[in-house]
């Protein structure tokens, strides 16, 4: 009985998946119709347009075949418009990590300062409140104009969107360290630096990590849009390029890959969060 209930949720998941694939399959069954235009035109525009079909949305089988094709050869490189999905994902993950780590390097010390000093907090709060709600993509033209490099601009956009959750959470975590722990440090005559690293940092670490987890999620959302704008490489550019190629199966594959990589990034941060979390 216990073993059965253990398997109930995965079984339900599988049923939902099969159901979705079934509906998808049913909706994309090929409708055969007579050719309505002449053969020469049909050869020019492709069979789908020629037969007057409404859409050529791929069937689950097409999708599966495409995934298999990508899995067989994820890292090929045949020129700037034909790179394997693995390479494109690599570019995106690389940009996200660089922008994200730069943001962490700035947000965590600055958040520390803001959290420690109510004066600094009040002084910087208006800036944070105004800058925080700005869509990171709005910075793109400014970045392109000043940095004059599309790839660096994408990294800058990641940097700016990862900054706020980390900054705010660090400041909050540092400001809400329990007074009694600070009092312990004070009665032990612990210096400010040792207090910061041995008391405040571990006490605020779970809150800081929560901010970092929110940030990596936002960064991965934004990179797709950013790469659609700047072009060249990356999974966002891949999606846009395949839209121009009208290859829906490739777009679907990319969507699935984006979801899986996003899940992995979140899982990694969740693991790290668990490492620094302490039970009270």
């Amino acid at each position: 009985m216990n073993r059965l209930s253990h398997w109930r949720a995965p079984l339900l998941s599988l049923i939902v998946l099969l159901l979705l694939i079934g509906i998808w399959h049913a909706l994309t069954l090929p409708t055969t119709s007579k050719q309505t235009v002449n053969a020469e035109y049909a050869a020019l525009v492709g069979a789908a347009a020629a037969t007057g079909q409404k859409s050529t949305f791929p069937t689950p089988a097409d999708f599966g075949a495409k995934i298999w094709q990508h899995l067989k050869e994820p890292f090929y490189d045949r020129g700037s418009n034909d790179k394997g999905i693995g390479i494109q994902l690599g570019y995106s993950v690389g940009r996200v990590l660089i922008g994200y780590l730069l943001a962490a390097l700035m947000a965590i010390p600055l958040g520390f300062l803001i959290g420690m000093s109510p004066t600094v907090y009040r002084a910087l709060d208006p800036f944070i409140q105004v800058l925080k709600p700005i869509s990171p993509l709005a910075w793109m033209p400014l970045a392109l104009f000043t940095l004059k490099d599309s790839s660096i601009s994408a990294i800058f956009v990641i940097f700016i969107c990862s900054l706020w959750p980390m900054l705010i959470n660090t400041a909050f975590g540092v400001a809400s360290v329990r007074r009694e722990w600070l009092n312990v440090a004070r009665t032990l005559e612990v210096g400010p630096l040792r207090t910061a690293f041995r008391v405040i940092l571990p006490a605020a670490a779970p809150t800081i990590m929560t901010g970092m987890r929110i940030s990596i999620g936002i960064a991965w959302l934004v990179i797709v849009a950013a790469e659609m704008l700047v072009g060249g490489t990356g999974i966002g550019y891949f999606v846009w390029n395949e839209w121009n190629n009208l290859s829906i199966t490739n777009i679907l594959t990319a969507i699935l890959a984006i979801g899986l990589v996003g899940m992995l990034l979140d899982l990694m941060l969740a693991r790290l969060t668990r490492l620094v979390t302490f039970p009270e």
Binding site: E180, N183, V184, T187, L188, V199, P202, V276, P279
Partner: peptide
């Protein structure tokens, strides 16, 4: 505050991320 005068707090004020040894060694 000074190391001359040690305080035992009502709420024990131990650091939950440290072990017993870690708290005292700190």
């Amino acid at each position: 505050p000074s190391l001359d005068r040690a305080v035992i707090f009502q709420s024990h004020a131990l650091m939950p991320w440290l072990t017993v040894m870690g708290n005292i060694a700190f």
